[in-house]
Design a protein around this nucleic acid. Structure first.
Lengths: 130, 130
DNA sequence: TAACAGAGTGTTATAATATAACATTTAATA
DNA sequence: TATTAAATGTTATATTATAACACTCTGTTA
């Protein structure tokens, strides 16, 4: 289990924005939102994002180049992540399903690869958009 | 089942390069490789890539912004894709495992989302790099 | 056959996403 | 207090991707 982490000023600012957001946020939209706090350059955002990902506080949605807060306790530093993504409203929901996660984690590739981590993205229509 | 498709000139050129490659290719590296054939602009590459993806001839590896040829017959127009990605040598291998695919496809999200498609990316070390 | 529709092409420009490099500051610790 | 590690600020640039528009080619269909 990862221990509680102290966040730096910039990391905290970025995390706050992502946690408050209803959906995934893009790096440059975060940047735009924090310019009033004295953060002016993409580097500052990307550095904070990198650390937050390392700590498991946020996840990157690869298919959207966007970032969401981690809402799950059992993805333990993002070794096993799964998301449902609505193709209509862009909503992203973290899937926290122990059985699914366990099944995938225990999947053994024929070619003898040893997995450290996986990321699964589902696409479809959410309940509202359906 | 998707029927055999006739490819346009640019689509064929791009597909040939991707099929011949040992690993995933980036759009701009494809561009560089086809300039001798008279393709000069990113648009031409991206348009071909889009169509090839639609046809299920290639897949995009989202975490790498790179493209690989489809080696599987059962991902039927990319409704269910899975890849193993070596974090050391960058190799990507398409996973074609009916059981895994079936299990994931039949996963039902509590929130009532209806899935059309999924993409799964495993990360680790391949046999060689291990 | 003329005209039209659809897919594809070529081209220029620009938007959006991400990193390199370097100087400085702050925090934690020997 | 000297030393280190982590974080910051800044400028510049690399990488990935799309917009917009004019043109071509091919197969309908009126």
């Amino acid at each position: 289990m990862a221990q509680a982490q102290i966040l730096s000023r910039n990391q905290q600012i970025v995390l706050d924005i992502i946690e408050k957001a209803k959906g995934p946020l893009k790096a440059y939209s975060i940047l735009f939102n924090v310019q009033k706090k004295g953060i002016n350059a993409p580097q500052q955002i990307y550095r904070a994002l990198d650390k937050l990902i390392e700590m498991g506080k946020i996840h990157k949605i690869e298919s959207k180049n966007a970032f969401v807060a981690c809402r799950s306790s059992d993805c333990e530093i993002s070794k096993a992540t799964a998301f449902s993504i609505c193709e209509s409203c862009e909503m992203v929901d973290e899937i926290s399903d122990a059985k699914l996660s366990k099944y995938i984690s225990s999947f053994n590739h024929k070619k003898g690869m040893k997995f450290k981590r996986f990321n699964l993205e589902f696409f479809g229509l959410c309940k509202k958009c359906k």
